[in-house]
Design a protein around this nucleic acid. Structure first.
Length: 421
RNA sequence: GUGGGCGUAGCUCAGUUGGCUAGAGCGCCAGGUUGUGGUCCUGGAGGUCGCGGGUUCGACCCCCGUCGCUCACCCCA
């Protein structure tokens, strides 16, 4: 019999590692709600065109990394490769009151060769705010991301920001950049030497030393913005300053999706190797809703990869903690008392574990110890006969001490002893 | 899609120039006399040596293929 494995590039997250995921998702949900973002649930797959038109039919993600399939009705669908396009599609479909602020947590799929920090299915949390060009919204979105990383305990995450302008001023810049690259074509890397004209902006993103040397001396995006875009960008930066969020200007930061306008940003972890150091990113996409058939609507958002965040978190020296157990019920009379006692204690809000399969007392005590429980509640023939329970401290100063009390005093006694640590 | 490294118990790995019923540590299970965990001691379960083919008297060890894992490039979270 063949043993099945998770498909290539995918992975299971099991306890105790999954405890970190619970904390991360919980922290994100709380921050998003505090900032007025509501949860959006949307389908994992969409008409391929949503992504083609959304993230740009020429981007790598759309051309060679999408999980495209046909359903039984002949519809061409794709598993979502990122979060934003689906949200904007939902916006266009439902036309909610603006600004529409939503958060999401979702898997994302990209058909590419897996490596460290890169998977075929990864998971993102993010927010989108659609319907307003106000730079205060850019600030709110970026701040949410920054506070999220802080909440996770990440200290070595840096914010890089840039502005790509609106379509007109960007087009003007692309013209200037293209001309400049043409003059220095011979100095570019092998790939871009002949291909720079197809997409001059992509050259800015090239990490090869040759291209970096040329582009860092060339015309810079922020210097070619129109007055309105310049003003918007300045407002975003001063907004970040006003709440103490540090940033670095990254004039050559051009993100992989075609929909970005004006503000673009990326959070990178200094604890991770440069190849996969981006833990989150986003920006404005003021033309995207229109692209998907909706009204002209500004929008801004970000997404963050949970696997990357976990890697960064570990690289910063954090380590996982097991799920906490408050009480372990040991029952040597067959297990029926444990059923009743565990239920009673759980209804009191305590985290309660117990043994199964009628194991020996020694085995149950060993499990109790390994569970990390503060106290064990023991029921044997003697307790069962007299309607009492024995409560034993498993850790702390009183470790090893135990008392036998009437069953009616179970909750009070456990509370008193379990909360000491 | 291209290239490098690796594939032996649940996990981390040993396994001598191919040759006795394939090992260790950890983990797991059970004991160490009277109902009580952590340390210690003893014992036990658990492996088609990724899979298929080839060379050989004989292969975990050599050759070929294949699948998988991993790292890198591209790009991204």
């Amino acid at each position: 019999m063949e043993i099945f494995r998770a498909p290539i590039g995918t992975h299971d997250v099991l306890p105790p590692d999954s405890a970190w995921w619970e904390r991360a998702l919980g922290a994100f949900a709380q921050l998003a709600r505090r900032a007025g973002f509501g949860l959006l649930l949307s389908p994992l797959f969409e008409d391929v065109a949503v992504f083609d038109r959304g993230i740009g039919a020429t981007s790598d993600v759309a051309t060679k990394e999408m999980y495209v399939f046909e359903d039984r009705g002949g519809r061409r669908l794709a598993l979502r490769p990122e979060g934003t396009a689906s949200v904007v599609r939902a916006f266009v479909q439902h036309r909610p009151v603006v600004p529409w602020k939503v958060w999401y947590a979702t898997p994302a799929f990209r058909y590419e060769r897996p490596q460290a920090g890169r998977y075929r299915q990864h998971h993102q949390v993010g927010v989108e705010a659609i319907g307003s060009p106000d730079p205060a919204l850019d600030v709110e979105v970026i701040a949410l991301a920054a506070r999220f990383y802080e909440a996770l305990g990440l200290r070595r995450v840096r914010l890089l920001i840039n502005s790509m302008g609106h379509p007109e001023c960007r087009a003007a810049y692309v013209g200037v950049l293209g001309a400049y690259l043409g003059e220095h074509a011979a100095e570019l890397c092998e790939e871009h030497r002949t291909r720079f004209a197809e997409s001059p902006l992509r050259v800015l993103d090239c990490k090869r030393p040759a291209c970096v040397a040329v582009t860092e001396r060339g015309p810079q995006l922020p210097d070619h913005l129109c007055a309105a875009c310049r003003e918007h960008f300045a407002a975003v930066r001063s907004g970040l300053d006003s709440i103490g969020i540090g940033w670095s200007l990254a004039p050559r930061l051009v993100r992989g999706f075609d929909y970005y306008t004006r503000t673009t940003f990326e959070f990178v972890s200094e604890a991770l190797a440069a190849a996969q150091n981006a833990v989150g990113g986003g920006g404005r996409y003021d033309g995207l809703a229109e692209q998907l058939g909706g009204p002209a609507s500004a929008g801004v958002g970000f997404g963050s990869g949970l696997e990357r965040l976990r890697l960064a978190w570990e690289a910063e020296g954090h380590h996982g903690e097991a799920d906490r157990v408050d009480v372990f019920v040991v029952d040597t009379t067959g297990g029926s008392h444990a059923t009743v006692l565990a239920d009673q204690l759980r209804r009191e809000g305590l985290v309660v574990e117990r043994a199964f399969d009628q194991r020996s007392m020694k085995a149950q005590m060993r499990l109790a110890d390994r569970s990390g429980a503060a106290v064990a509640v023991l029921v044997g023939p003697a307790e069962a006969a007299q309607g009492s329970v024995t409560i034993r401290d498993l850790r702390g100063a009183a470790e090893g001490a135990q008392v036998t009390v009437p069953a009616s005093e179970l909750v009070a006694t456990v509370r008193e002893r379990a909360t000491e640590r």
